[in-house]
């Protein structure tokens, strides 16, 4: 807050009103509805709803299918998070280290960020196509008969590759700008003290990058949980039955394809709790980072 401020009876309300109005109608109203309808069993033909308490939640959490999808979501999230962070970090460290061409590499590496997840998914479908896909042919060299869209594990691997590919630039940008904010004096001191570049990375660079890396960890997790919807939707092509999907995709399927409003809402609320916990972690951490700066 500013030391000097305006005082006006109505102006601040006028300024903040548009934002508040939109948040009320499009955020609070639906959120409250989600929580409310998660306690009801809606008639599929629209004839009212009955209060069923927590049974939507126990149905969801107790179902074998839900548990399997939850397990896949965890594996998917962990792999996408760490692979894109790791590869992004490797490239950023190298781009920071080279003297010539650093900015060219940067330009060439960041722009994939601007490709929409479903567009990346469409390209993935082509590259993993049974008939024309070069990556399927590449896999065949090692005797691996990849059947993306038919085989559960193959589809999962293709989805992970596409999702990681799309997320590498984001990690690259943040880690590179983190690296470039390390003062030259610190780097020089480290270079005098320690000749091994690898050890220098572990003992000097990585600790200094820790705040950025932690922030990216959370962002990558929310990316893998939610933003990959487009990749998944394009790659499973409405045949979710024997293909891997994530929890968000199940919320969508149950709500819009299965017309199970209560069940879908209960799953939404479960996801809300997951995101809530993740975000609290993130904000606590950012506070600490600002504090030490």
């Amino acid at each position: 807050m500013k030391r000097v401020q305006f005082s006006s009876v109505y102006l601040p309300y006028l300024f903040i009103a548009p934002q508040m109005a939109i948040i009320f109608v499009f955020f609070y109203w639906p959120s409250v509805q989600a929580i409310q309808s998660s306690f009801y069993l809606e008639d599929p033909f629209g004839f009212g709803a009955t209060f069923v308490g927590l049974s939507n939640y126990s149905d969801a959490l107790g179902s074998v299918q839900y548990q399997a999808i939850a397990r896949f979501t965890v594996v998917f999230t962990v792999l996408v998070t760490f692979l894109s962070l790791g590869i992004g970090m490797l490239l950023a460290v190298k781009a920071d280290a080279v003297l010539k061409g650093s900015s060219t590499y940067k330009t060439l590496l960041i722009w994939v960020y601007a490709i929409a997840p479903p567009v990346a998914g469409l390209m993935g479908m082509m590259f993993f196509d049974q008939h024309i896909g070069p990556l399927v042919k590449f896999a065949a060299l090692f005797g691996w008969d990849m059947k993306v869209g038919l085989n559960y594990n193959d589809t999962a691997i293709a989805m992970i590759i596409v999702s990681v590919w799309k997320q590498i630039p984001y990690n690259f940008i943040f880690i590179l700008s983190g690296l470039q904010s390390i003062p030259v004096s610190v780097r020089e001191a480290a270079a005098i003290d320690c000749r091994s570049g690898f050890r220098r990375f572990w003992t000097m660079t990585l600790p200094l990058l820790a705040p950025t890396a932690f922030f990216l960890l959370i962002i990558n997790m929310t990316y893998a949980l939610f933003d990959t919807f487009g990749v998944i939707d394009v790659m499973v092509k409405d045949k979710a039955a024997n293909n891997p999907i994530t929890l968000v995709y199940k919320v969508y399927m149950d709500g819009f394809r299965g017309n199970d409003l209560g069940g879908s809402s209960a799953q939404s609320v479960i996801l809300m709790i997951v995101v809530f916990v993740l975000t609290i972690f993130q904000f606590r951490f950012i506070e600490r980072r600002v504090h030490y700066n």
Binding site: I23, V25, F26, P30, A34, V251, L261, S264, M272
Partner: peptide, 16 residues
């Protein structure tokens, strides 16, 4: 609003 992305409240948002 930062806590809940659109993806987790799609069904009720659609109803609204």
């Amino acid at each position: 609003t930062l806590l809940l992305p659109l993806e987790v409240r799609i069904v009720p948002s659609y109803e609204v």
